[in-house]
């Protein structure tokens, strides 16, 4: 991965910017260029809520190279409070503490590094809400 592709996507990754189709009243994350339902190309950029409910989760034992040193790590399917579904890593949590239905919030986190002297890649992960929300 090079820096242009990183810079290009960072606002969507850091701030959870989705694309919204007014015709279908649907939000798409990852963001899309056209609505997969009606084909509308005039999609609006909207910020997703940074809080939601964990629908279910798994943990990954066979990662890709970028995440080699992080496995096993937890991946969850989250329903954000506006109903948008997102798949994300869960962090700051022990596997034993997880259960379906807990409240989770988005946090800014390091994803992986490109060797000792390469770029450090950041993004969004989710963690159990620190205070009840």
């Amino acid at each position: 991965m090079g820096s242009p592709s990183y810079w290009r996507e960072k606002v969507y990754r850091y701030r959870l910017i989705a694309k919204y189709c007014e015709n279908c009243n649907k939000k798409y994350y990852p963001p899309k260029l056209a609505c997969p339902i009606c084909g509308n190309k005039e999609l609006k950029e909207v910020q997703l809520p940074r809080i939601g409910t964990l629908i279910t989760y798994t943990w990954v034992t066979q990662p890709t190279k970028d995440f080699a040193t992080q496995a096993p790590y937890v991946v969850g399917l989250i329903k954000l409070d506006d109903g948008t579904l997102i798949v994300s890593q869960l962090t700051d949590v022990e596997i034993e503490e997880l259960k379906d239905g807990i409240r989770v919030e988005a946090v800014f986190r390091r994803m992986f590094e490109e060797g000792d002297s390469g770029l450090i890649y950041y993004g969004t992960k989710f963690r159990p809400c620190l205070f009840s929300k």
Partner: peptide
């Protein structure tokens, strides 16, 4: 091999975030 297989998903949002095909099937 795992990295190659994960390239079947949208690299910019799935693979970037450590989401693998087996994680999606697990869900």
């Amino acid at each position: 091999y795992n990295t190659a297989i994960a390239s079947f998903l949208d690299n910019e949002y799935f693979t970037y975030n450590g989401i693998t095909p087996s994680a999606l099937y697990a869900i």
